[in-house]
C-alpha cells in the first residue's frame, strides 16, 4: 500500500492553485480531504505526477447566506455541513444525507466539494445536489463559470471540470420549510449505498406543491426522478399518492429497480412526515 512518487504542492490562494494545475498539466490532481483519492493512490490505481493540496485555501470553507441561495465552500467538511445552521434551516436534505456518510473520522476529513468532484455514482451527495438544482461555481485560468449540477455530472467518476479547473463553491437554492429525507440501503456501516433516495417535499395547504427526488447508485451518475416529482405535484401527502408516484422511480424488474421504488416510497413518506 505504497503510492507511486509524486510532487506535492500547497497553494495558498485559488488563483495560485489554478496556475499550478495549468503548469503541472493533465497528470496533476487536486487533493481535498483525500478520503477517496488516498486509497486510490495507495493501491496505485492512479499515479498522478503532482498533488495540489487545497487544504490551505481557507477561502473555500464554510457556508454563506447569499439571498435566495446558500453558497457552500468546496472545502467545507462533512462535519461542518452537519453542524451548519444555514444548511439545517434552508437545505435540510443535505444535512440528513451528510449524517449518513461513512463515519465520524471520515466526516471530519472529507469535503463537500471533494465528494462531488470525485463523482462516484455511489457517493451520497451527488443525488441530493442534483435534485436540489444546485449550481457549481468553478475557477479556471480564464476566470469563473457556473455549471448546473445536471451538466456537471457526466459519467462514472467524470465531471464537467476541465483539467485546469477547481470547484470553489456550490450554490444551493433555499428550500426553507421543506420536508426532507435520505433513505439509504447499505449492508454494513462503512459500505457504499446499494441504492439510496434523496427526497425533499414542499407541502402547502394539504397539497404537495413541489418535490425533488434524486437516486444514488442506480446508473453512471446521480439520477433525477422527474417522473416521481411530477406525479406528486398537486397530490395530497397520502400514502396512496406516494406509493403511486414511487412506482415511477424505475420501470425494471431487477433488484435495484425494486429498491429504487421501495426506497423512494419510504423517503417520500418520511419527508412529508418531517
Amino acid at each position: 500500500m505504497i503510492p507511486a512518487e509524486f510532487k506535492y504542492l500547497f497553494p495558498s490562494t485559488v488563483d495560485e492553485a489554478v496556475r499550478m494545475l495549468a503548469e503541472e498539466g493533465e497528470d496533476a490532481k487536486v487533493i481535498a480531504g483525500g478520503q477517496s483519492l488516498v486509497p486510490v493512490l495507495r493501491m496505485r490505481l492512479a499515479a498522478p505526477t503532482a498533488l495540489i493540496d487545497i487544504g490551505g485555501l481557507t477561502e473555500l470553507t464554510g457556508v454563506r447566506d447569499d439571498g435566495d441561495s446558500l453558497l457552500i465552500g468546496a472545502m467545507t467538511t462533512h462535519y461542518e455541513v452537519q453542524r451548519d445552521h444555514l444548511v439545517q434551516d434552508h437545505a435540510l436534505l443535505l444535512r440528513l444525507v451528510t449524517d449518513t456518510i461513512a463515519d465520524p473520522q471520515i466526516r471530519h476529513r472529507g469535503t463537500f466539494g471533494g465528494s462531488l468532484c470525485h463523482a462516484d455514482p455511489a457517493g451520497d451527495l451527488l443525488a441530493p445536489v442534483l435534485a436540489l438544482d444546485a449550481v457549481m461555481i468553478i475557477a479556471g485560468p480564464s476566470g469563473r463559470r457556473e455549471v448546473p449540477a445536471a451538466e456537471f455530472f457526466v459519467d462514472y467518476f467524470t465531471t464537467a471540470l476541465a483539467a485546469d479547473e477547481i470547484l470553489v463553491d456550490v450554490r444551493v437554492p433555499k428550500y426553507t420549510g421543506w420536508g426532507a429525507h435520505y433513505e439509504k440501503l447499505n449492508r454494513v456501516a462503512q459500505a457504499w449505498s446499494i441504492v439510496a433516495v434523496a427526497a425533499a417535499v414542499q407541502v402547502r395547504d394539504g397539497t404537495i406543491s413541489a418535490a425533488r427526488v434524486g437516486l444514488t447508485n442506480v446508473g453512471s451518475g446521480p439520477v433525477r426522478a422527474t417522473g416521481v416529482e411530477e406525479a406528486l405535484i398537486g397530490q395530497p401527502p397520502s400514502s396512496e399518492a406516494i406509493s403511486e408516484a414511487a412506482l415511477r422511480a424505475s420501470s425494471g424488474d431487477g433488484y435495484k429497480d425494486n429498491l429504487a421504488r421501495v426506497l423512494t416510497g419510504r423517503a417520500l413518506t418520511a419527508a412529508v412526515a418531517g
Binding site: 477517496s36 486509497p39 490505481l45 492512479a46 455511489a122 462514472y156 459500505a191 457504499w192 433488484y255
Partner: peptide
C-alpha cells in the same frame, strides 16, 4: 440465487472502473 452479485457492496469495485485495473 443471484450469486454474490455486482451490487454486493458498492465498494471499490466502482473505483476499479476508473482505474481500469
Amino acid at each position: 440465487d443471484p450469486g454474490a452479485g455486482d451490487v454486493a457492496a458498492g465498494g471499490l469495485g466502482s473505483i476499479d472502473a476508473q482505474g481500469g485495473q
